[in-house]
Amino acid sequence: MKCPLCGYNIPREKIECRNCPMGNNCQLVCCPHCHYQFIDPHSSRLLNLLKRLFKR
């Protein structure tokens, strides 16, 4: 996953959500390099549903 702000390629294991109180169901990803938060498209149920529909 690439941070849209600083362009850092974020390895999954480096996603830093431990300090965040929003819990496990948050779709936001925090870049460990610049701390920018953005939505992880892979976590979108709607998107996954649409992808499945279009693949059919």
Partner: peptide, 10 residues
């Protein structure tokens, strides 16, 4: 488009 869909859902 992918990012927008994910954002709108969120």
């Amino acid at each position: 488009v992918i990012k927008t869909i994910a954002r709108v859902e969120w």
